[in-house]
Amino acid sequence: MISVIIHKFSSPKSFVQITKTLYPLFIFTGLFMLIIGWTWGLLFAPPDAVQGNSYRIIFLHVPAVIFAELIYFFMALCALMHIVWRVRLAAYLIKSAAPIGAMITFIGLFSGSIWGIPTWGTWWQWDARITSTLILFIMYLGILTLHGSFSNLEKSDRLMSILVVIGVVNIPIIKKSVDWWSTLHQPASISVSGGSSIDPSMLYPLIISVIGLGFTLISLGILTSRSYILGREKNKKWVLDHV
């Protein structure tokens, strides 16, 4: 039953058609919310009592690291679908999401480093959270390199899926590193289960920025996956009709 549902909704053709319709909605929502969130955060939110204005990097840094981990989770789910049900689209989505994951992890690392200069007095610290995020970045690069190493693309897809599934073991370590080890990095400011330690005047723009960046990254994902799918399926009739 699950297998039938998955195969029905996972044809590359329907994915390209559906996402073509959804793309304008996603990109508009994403950019609109990012502009609102960042303008609010950068200009209207009050300065932090301890960090002053440097804390405003939070409106970029926190959404970036949230999506650095979420994208990997998404890839792991796709990898599982590809391994268990041999869904072609799932492999295409992993390949398309990996560079976006690498990019957003880089932004998370970079913004954190810059934020560290006025706050901690150093741009890099070998503490648990920063090091494990760097490892996540290397994982993204590893996945991309592995996929690019073989000329047989079906083989690359399968090997990449196996690696992504195995690599998911690092995600809880990255997530809980600030709680498990003594580190310079502060514990998570916002949590899904509630109990946020941040003032509403800073929390609301942060939430809006997270949603905005989410929609923007989904839009970027739609573009990269569309180009990849069209390239991979170039010999199929539906692609010719689509083009």
């Binding site: 960042w38 950068l42 300065p47 002053g52 204005n53 440097s54 405003r56 990097i57 970029l60 840094h61 970036a64 976006i100 990019m103 880089f106 932004i107 970079f110 913004s111 810059i114 934020w115 200069i117 006025p118 923007t216 839009s219 970027l220 573009l223 990269t224 569309r226 180009s227 069209l230």
Partner: peptide
């Protein structure tokens, strides 16, 4: 930003540039 502008604005401008370049690359690829 009381001396923090260099950090805040440089981070946002570089991140936005990376995002814009990624969108342009993806569009060109299609």
């Amino acid at each position: 930003m009381n001396g923090h502008g260099i950090y805040v604005w440089s981070v946002y401008s570089i991140a936005i540039s990376i995002l814009v370049v990624s969108f342009l690359i993806a569009k060109n690829r299609i």
